[in-house]
């Protein structure tokens, strides 16, 4: 098999000491990069050189490196997770880059997801949105039979597509309004489609949208930047569903009349 040529790259990387510090771009050379390396492996090699020369390595979030955990992610030349669609940056390989290319690497930027160091930012606002309603309440015990609850195939498929969200934050990062609408809507529509999600359906839509707003994310202007950036290719259609769920819940939500055991 023909051996692929290693490439050299010029990197312009955002360096920021901590959340308070004022960051700046620093230039680095990535030399003799194997085209088979992933983008993160390329950064690992750059970091090894930095450590050897006594510098601080570039901090970036990462975990599974299989594209399923949602830990990694930053902007490469203004594109979340880099130029390839439907890919996390850990699964982006260096064969997609040309020798001598200049790459500007920046962290996710959004007021609600502040940078903590270099390419790493605090995404706990997304966790709080999930905590506010992105779950179903079930009794604990043995796992139920897989087909115990019948779900129509189209609904199951659609729910799976929404559930594929890994919460990486690329949607927020690439949105000009730093809107978390795609992230929030994926969970709302995922659970609204399934029988298990019906009990909390209305309250979930109300609470998750309220939390999304409270965290200081912007609103959706349907640019589609999120859908294009999403490594799991979550569809914009989820946002339409969220809006519908939210209107429905606003209209149909019953007043709490008290009584019972609500001491």
């Amino acid at each position: 098999m023909e051996k692929k040529q290693n490439i050299n790259l010029k990197l312009k990387v955002w360096r920021q000491k901590n959340a308070q510090a004022k960051g700046e771009f620093k230039e680095y050379d990535a030399k003799e990069v194997s085209p088979d390396a992933s983008f993160l492996e390329m950064l690992d090699a750059v970091n090894e050189d930095l450590i050897k020369s006594g510098d601080q390595p570039i901090t970036f979030d990462h975990d599974c490196r299989e594209g399923i955990c949602g830990s990694c992610g930053f902007m490469i030349n203004g594109e979340a997770h880099g130029p390839q669609k439907g890919t996390t940056v850990c699964q982006l390989h260096m064969r997609h880059f040309k020798n001598g290319e200049h790459l500007t690497i920046e962290p996710w930027r959004a007021a609600a997801m502040p940078i903590t160091k270099d390419l790493m930012c605090d995404r706990s606002a997304l966790d709080r949105i999930i905590t506010s309603g992105g779950y179903v309440s079930v009794n604990t015990g043995n796992a139920r039979d897989a087909n115990n609850i019948p779900i129509p195939k189209p609904d199951a498929d659609e729910a799976f597509l929404s559930a594929a969200c890994i919460g990486c934050g690329a949607c927020v990062a690439s949105c000009k309004n730093a809107s978390a609408a795609l992230f929030t809507s994926a969970k709302i529509s995922h659970l609204a489609l399934l029988p298990q999600g019906q009990v909390e359906r209305k309250q979930r839509a109300l609470d998750m949208v309220a939390q999304m707003d409270a965290e200081g994310f912007g609103s959706c202007t349907s640019t589609g930047a999120c859908e294009a950036a999403c490594p799991k290719e979550i569809s914009l259609i989820n946002i339409a569903k969220m809006n519908r769920e939210f209107l429905r819940a606003s209209v149909l939500k019953k007043e709490e009349v008290g009584g019972g055991d609500m001491a």
Binding site: M75, G78, E106, G218, A225, A229
Partner: peptide
């Protein structure tokens, strides 16, 4: 509100497959 939510702008904006339409921007 959206400007506040965005905070900082990026040094480079997307121009490949992940860019958005002029009309929406």
């Amino acid at each position: 509100q959206n400007r506040v939510a965005r905070g900082a702008q990026y040094a480079v904006s997307a121009n490949g497959e992940k860019a958005v339409s002029w009309g929406s921007r």
